[in-house]
């Protein structure tokens, strides 16, 4: 942390002598320890998943949804500061609505990301604001098919076959790279997303979590962003737990020994 004590990291929009914007880097730190989120782009759709850390058993189960809808055909999942994520989503909704009111058709995904990237970038430019403390994974289907993007606190966004953010992102990325993302069906991708979130949770084992899963697919959801139906969610969780047991049987047993 060469940044500390230099004074160049105390305000947003300040460059350090070697050309870095430390406040943006610190914003990324808010993401790095948050619950893992991921998105997968399949042949005909998108799957979004997140590991929702349960901080109290008094929380109402299966409420407090984390994955949100920007427009009928666009979903978002984010890791980091949750209120910042809501701010980001609200902006996305405004952009989608303003596009529709002007052009009378749903916004295209690259166009939406263009606008959102622009907005997030603006929060790195002024000392009167701070950057967004989130990595947002945005997926949707438009006339050109499915698109998946990830927006970072700097305002940069890239298109992905699959993206992951949050604490377990390294594990998740390694697993996502093993998938054949050019042929996988959206239904299978849902199960893989569940498995990978369960696996990534190993990095955060001391905390309980809830899995949240949404999908968009021409075939399965008529191009609309929906939470996966209960039966498929249960199937995916079962698959995730079974795969977890198979994969890490040696790991988990050694864990138990250590615990004892």
């Amino acid at each position: 942390m060469t940044s500390i004590g230099t004074g160049y990291d105390l305000s947003n929009s300040i460059f350090s002598p070697d050309g870095r914007n430390f406040q943006v880097e610190y914003a990324s730190k808010a993401v790095e320890n948050a619950g893992t989120s991921l998105g997968i782009r399949t042949k005909d759709g998108i799957v979004l998943a997140t590991e929702k850390i349960i901080t109290s058993k008094l929380l109402v189960p299966n409420k407090n949804k984390r994955i949100q809808t920007i427009d009928r055909h666009v979903g978002v999942v984010y890791s980091g500061l949750i209120p910042d994520g809501r701010h980001f989503v609200n902006r996305g909704r405004d952009e989608a609505e303003s596009f529709r009111s002007l052009y009378k058709e749903p916004i295209g995904i690259p166009g939406l990301l263009d606008r959102l990237g622009y907005y997030v970038q603006a929060y790195t430019c002024y000392n009167s604001v701070r950057p967004f403390g989130i990595n947002a994974i945005v997926g949707g289907i438009d006339d050109d098919g499915p698109h998946l993007y990830m927006v970072e606190p700097s305002g940069v966004y890239w298109g992905y076959y699959a993206a992951a953010a949050g604490k377990g992102r390294q594990t998740a990325k390694a697993e996502l790279e093993k998938l054949d993302l050019t042929t996988i069906s959206t239904r299978d991708a849902v199960k893989e997303a569940a498995r990978i979130i369960y696996l990534a949770h190993e990095d955060n084992k001391d905390k309980e979590f809830e899995l949240e899963l949404t999908w968009i697919s021409k075939e399965e959801t008529n191009g609309l962003h929906k939470f996966v139906p209960k039966d498929l969610l249960e199937e995916a969780i079962k698959y995730a737990e079974e795969e977890g047991d198979d994969d890490g049987s040696s790991d988990s047993s050694s864990d138990e020994e250590m615990d004892d």
Binding site: K65, Q68, R72, R100, S101, F227
Partner: peptide
């Protein structure tokens, strides 16, 4: 249509 979309935000799943 806008109203319908706005309404769906709240309901989640």
């Amino acid at each position: 249509n806008d109203l319908e979309i706005d309404e769906s935000y709240d309901a989640g799943d």
